[in-house]
Design a protein around this nucleic acid. Sequence first.
RNA 1: GGCCCGGUGGCGCAAUUGGUUAGCGCAUCAGACUGUCGAUCUGAGGGUUGAGGGUUCGAGCCCCUUCCGGGUCGCCA
Length: 593
Amino acid sequence: MKLKRTHDCGQLTRANVGEEVILNGWVDSCRNHGGLIFLDLRDRYGITQCQIDPATTVGGEEFKTESVVAVRGTVQPRPEGNVNRKRATGEIELMALECELLGPTKTIPFEIVDDSDTREDLRLKYRYLDMRRAPLTRAMVFRSEVTRIIREVFHAERFVEVETPLLMKTTPEGARDYIVPSRLQPGKVYALPQSPQLFKQTLMVCGLDRYFQICKCLRDEDLRADRQPEFTQLDMEMSFVEPDDVFAVIEKTVTRLWKELLGKDLPATFPRLSYREVMDRYGIDKPDTRFGLELQDVSAIAASCGFQVFSGAVAAGGSVRAIVVPGGAELGRKKIDALEAVAKTYGAKGLAWVKINADGFQGPVGKFLTEDELRAMMAKAGANTGDLMLFVADRNPVVYASLAQVRLALGRELDLIDKSRTDVLWVTEFPLFEYDEEAGAWFAMHHMFTMPSTPLPDRPGAAMADIHGKLYDLVINGNEMGSGSVRIHLPEVQRKVFELVGMGQEEADMKFGWFLRALEYGAPPHGGIALGLDRLVMVMLGYDNIRDVIAFPKNASGVCPLTESPSEPLGDTLDVLGLQLNPDFFKKVETEG
RNA sequence: GGCCCGGUGGCGCAAUUGGUUAGCGCAUCAGACUGUCGAUCUGAGGGUUGAGGGUUCGAGCCCCUUCCGGGUCGCCA
């Protein structure tokens, strides 16, 4: 290139008038008026208008949108009345003396505008074009700032940044592993990390005291709008700590991120709510507390009512809970049906409702309950005339899950969520174990390395439901942003937990023997947390899709439309590993099954 | 794997109850134009409506199968 830039496209102002400069960038738009051409040159930093006189400008012509061009010219003030107030460089323009086409372009497949509505797989196929859009460029720069600040805080707090292996031992608990076959050890495989959990705990046994890492984690599960097969975590671990010590570091980090990057003040410490409390009030362990409509337990009244659906649910050990929608008596049947559909998605058999009109009760529940029972429920739930009450009666997990989602749907539908608010909170005191009715077994709710708060029972059983762990989640605006715990540092406790979730001694030694051995040699009490970095950036920017904060994401089918991965293995890749792929395997299983 | 939504020129959309030659905006190409700023004006080209099958005198529209994309449930310790 002959014309190498002296400035970027966002920095020239009145102060530069008279200077001869060179700009390099992309053609944002090129407006040809015949006798003169206006060329908007764009780079990451901004857009500067260049004026080309086709008669005198060397190499001056109309350039194709998105081609890469260099312009040498003189900075001049724009004539009176032609200032563009929308741009930082709007007071000046570059009178082009010479132009050079640095990178020609084919006609682009879609327009590059901020509010793109091009379908996403096409945007991903041409990611380099899509990324030139301001919202995506901004996300990348913003994300870089987030990690910069995180590193500043953690280094200032004397954390050591350590890289842990990508090729590690497979431990198929939890999510499905991505597997990497070993060439040097035929017949064996590595796994890609679902998280560096055991390595970071081992680093505590190493005596590093405070560790952090911004690392990739990989889980072979189905994708969602907020879930990618590979994602990034801010992972940290500290020795000789209680949960409060972990909270303090994260609170410092998060408040500083919000302050520096969004100019918003968050409280110095975040509210702590117990798992019991958030489930009771919101039915979900990641509550969006930016609006009300909390769940109301009317089981006591429902237990003795004549409505079998209600009384039966309570008798079976479940509950009847309600959401009161203030002014909800105005809601039409269509909207209530839509809410019922939400409830059913989450396992509810139905969504009972009653409108409290001035002239009486209206709705299916009204027919089955006496007026006294309805009035008692109104009082218990805090409902008034003009309100709508929505009920779910079922087993507790179903009641919680369905009403929690009905509540969120109402929040969106009735526009109750104050988007200007940032509600950050800790959810604490999670149960350590959960019972999986399908599998008929107990398993660890978070993971198997969390220190119990109370003594463990001798053998698996119902008593496990009452065991709580030093477990905590960070929740921001209803998003699970991070999860952590104080860990087990005593090998006999760790062995006991393995045993309680049905892992025999032999199996435990095969999978985690190396780690149990590490705990036997002076392991410090320790704890930590991992934050989802992609989600954090997504929430900070107010985006609703995780792909928009990741440079080269996969689509919902796990395919990268840009590179077309995954792809058929090439050459002797498989032979070297002694492998054979059998894509028809799944079809066969289907037809034979 | 289940459910919901979608697939129509390069991109975004439209097309009464099934009914002429499938329209519109942007983009593209050609021409005009010395103050635009996502320029404007004039004109032109560009489509086997994702694929396959069926119903019908007639299918973009209805039915079946299938592929692709988005969302979601399951799943994600």
